[in-house]
Design a protein around this nucleic acid. Structure first.
Length: 257
DNA sequence: ATGGCATATCCTATATGA
């Protein structure tokens, strides 16, 4: 089974690029973030015509997450993280697909920091860690895939010095990511490529794509029960090089069985 | 400290992103 995560930065404007990627990469499951569309304008029909069933949690202008499954409809488990009834951002959706629980997440960016947006990021992260503990305790096979907005280590960015004040590199952000991993999750790309510089995001500024000045912020975390089935993991970097691309490229894993 | 670019919406202006 191939599971991918892709921050599309606007599903409607990006639809031709997304369909092109689905056709080429053929993921069985695709987690999408930053839909930037209300529920009513989600392009479900076009995706169904491409062979994918979908569930989505949209929001006008910002955020928004979806799970696509090839040749089937995802079975929704929940939308939104528990722990804060006042949080109205669409950043989490969870489904069951062929016996695997798939959590699709869009963690808050947190800039500028310090400030309320950074506080929200850390609070959301704490809620994710709490929810993830429950998922692990269930002993179900689980993948937590999405845009974590965290550069885990200095290997995961072309030049840490120029981003040292950014929310994505703060010690608090990195500590939260490590606390999550220490529950027993496996960062699939880093597990299979321990030393390689691998990026999933290149901003639109300063010719960063052409110079490969990227960041690794999109991650697929595997529960203990799935880590042993990890076969391959990578990034569809070619997607970022297309005309009209998102600033993120899709990341993916393949699992045995 | 700012801006560079891109997306979306209450669109010749503003908010957000990372």
């Amino acid at each position: 089974m191939k599971i991918a995560t892709f921050n599309v930065n606007g599903i409607n404007g990006r639809l031709p690029r997304v369909l092109e990627w689905l056709e080429e990469s053929q993921p069985d499951v695709a987690c999408l973030q930053e839909l930037k569309t209300p529920d009513a304008k989600f392009p479900a029909a076009a995706l169904r015509d491409a062979g994918y069933g979908a569930i989505w949690h949209g929001q006008a202008s910002y955020n928004g997450v979806a799970i696509l499954t090839r040749g089937a409809d995802p079975i929704e488990i929940r939308r939104g993280l528990p722990g804060d009834p006042d949080d109205n951002h669409s950043r989490y959706i969870e489904a069951a697909v062929e016996g695997v629980i798939v959590g699709c997440l869009y963690l808050p960016n947190g800039n500028p920091q310090p400030g309320p947006k950074f506080d929200y990021k850390l609070a959301w992260f704490a809620r994710l860690i709490e929810h993830a503990a429950g998922l692990l305790a269930s002993e179900h096979p689980v993948v937590l895939a999405g845009d974590y907005n965290v550069v885990p280590t200095d290997v995961d960015i072309y030049n840490p010095a120029s981003w040292r004040k950014d929310a994505l590199l703060q010690p608090e952000s990195r500590d939260a990511y490590q606390r999550l991993l220490k529950q027993g999750w496996t960062d699939a790309i880093r597990k299979l490529h321990p030393d390689e510089a691998i990026y999933t995001f290149w901003d639109y500024f300063r010719n960063h794509w052409a110079r490969n000045s990227g960041l690794r912020i999109d991650h697929l975390l595997l529960s203990k029960t799935l880590a042993g089935k990890l076969q391959d993991a990578g990034v569809d970097k070619w997607v970022r090089g297309k005309e009209g691309a998102s600033d993120h490229a899709p990341a993916w894993v393949t699992l045995a069985g």
